[in-house]
Design a protein around this nucleic acid. Sequence first.
RNA 1: GGCCCCGUAGCUCAACGGCAGAGCAGUUGACUCUUAAUCAAUUGGUUGCAGGUUCAAAUCCUGCCGGGGUCACCA
Length: 546
Amino acid sequence: MGAACIIRRSAAESRGQPIPSILSLQSSPIREIVTAMWQPNRLEQERLEKLHGLEALGIEAYPARAARTHSAQQAIVDYTAAEFATPEGADIPAVLVTVCGRIRRANVKGKVSFLHIEDETGRIQLFLRVNDMDEAIYSLVKTKLVDVDDFVQATGTLMRTQAGEISVRVSDFKLLAKSLSPLPVIKQQKLDDGTIVEYGEFSDVEARYRQRYADLAVNREVREVFQKRARVLRALRQFFDEEGFLEVETPVLQPVYGGAAARPFVTHHNQLHQDLYLRISFELYLKRLLVGGLDAVYEIGRDFRNEGVSFKHNTEFTMLEFYKAYIDYTGVMELTERMCAHTCLAVTGSTQVEYLGQTLDFSKPWARYTVREAIRREAEIDYMEYPDAVSLEKAINELGETVPPGQTWGKLVEHLLGKFVEPKLIQPTFIIDYPRDISPFAKRVEYDDVHVERFEFYMAGMEMGNAFTELNDPRDQEQRFLDMARLYRTGDDDETPLDEDYLRAMRYGMPPNGGFGMGIDRLVMLLTNQRTIRDVLLYPHLREEK
RNA sequence: GGCCCCGUAGCUCAACGGCAGAGCAGUUGACUCUUAAUCAAUUGGUUGCAGGUUCAAAUCCUGCCGGGGUCACCA
């Protein structure tokens, strides 16, 4: 709607015609759409009237500029320092500040009022006394033309109230932005030990996700999750940069998708008359770079998978992949352990973290089990005794498990792993040596023909990532593509399209290398103690609102 | 996609076949150091939408919309 409006305007302008005025819009269909969009409720109606009241007084409700000198936190730091530097009994030198923020609490009394304003650094109290300021300005607060939720600016000197709270003794006060829709009310009580108790809540998950701005504005701990998320990304980049990796960016829109088993989103380039896929992984593009002589690369970015959502799956998610020449999957495991310990330490200050009541420990070397060992222990079945899909499926059925018919042998092994082993892997654990037919990019193990040098690692019962000793023999790789085409039909989740350009790259010679992929959102879940991926995504995918 | 649960005031919730309510916030008034401020008074509803059953529906039934959980699926 907005776009249509803009196009009309610019078209008219380019023809030198007058831009339609608001009045002329009234007769157009756009006007109806605009008026239908917002129907203020009673509370919003009251605020609209206050806005009109402010404008009647000649007060700008949305001024363009502010003149902040101090964040809330900096003001408090400065005053505390001034107090500290002042001898007992002497006057503390005046600290003049201008602070800005959203009003989160208002205690309007008679001729004196208290407001708490909040910026990203925290809250600070404003102490307003009619004697200290222009009476007309004080009356904006007194008559409540200024509400909780409004953005304001206050100038004054710092002081402590009789109750001991550092506050701004306000001499000048200005509205920065009027809030027309009230935010959910949450009250805070600060206990003597410094802990904050909150009363009232904004907890409806749908409303919180659809209106994340309101969620962030109101729920302090939600802001903290996303501040921590940024620290996770920073810590990961720092780790790989210091390890000598080069950060790269590869195409999101790919003519041939690959590197994982997932259904892609398809889109279309109009001018080139070409279908393109949103990437499901970075793998094949990153490994081409090793051919090009970049020995260690990593990418952090978004993947898209056209599949179901759950507490650990979102349609688009943030992936970390790295590839390093001249290491195998044991080298990747060693890097993985250090990377996770480094990130946990950087984000939480410890190499252990509490997740949903359990302590995850990243400090020690992680346990390593082969897929075969793990399944033998947890499901009491040795899949090597059932060398084909038919007999293995029968053995699984005898355990009381039902599996979709027609699965390949490797998929059946994977089913056992997911069902019996994965939920039990709470501490960081490597599961190594996977079936070949579900691992088209991994090199064969030395001890048999059915396994490959691949590991997945698990924490808190969740798969976190996947890594291989990467296949670098172009003949073997071509055979894998052909095998996958034979095993999985077009449209199957495990369809692996043959990427001829990738094979061409590999024929030039690819150094032996180890590669790795990890869902960063899941790591953020662990490090921020969130039980669903939606709580570590600012805008999780939801059905369209109607 | 299957099954289960949920949708009531701005927010959080009650009422579970018989007058739709509370707290918070909002509004009005009082208050020159409050801090979940307090005190007094007070406004506020198409009970997600559409049908049905009933003398009577927020409540029971059906469908739809949205959300959550779970199973399937998802390397």
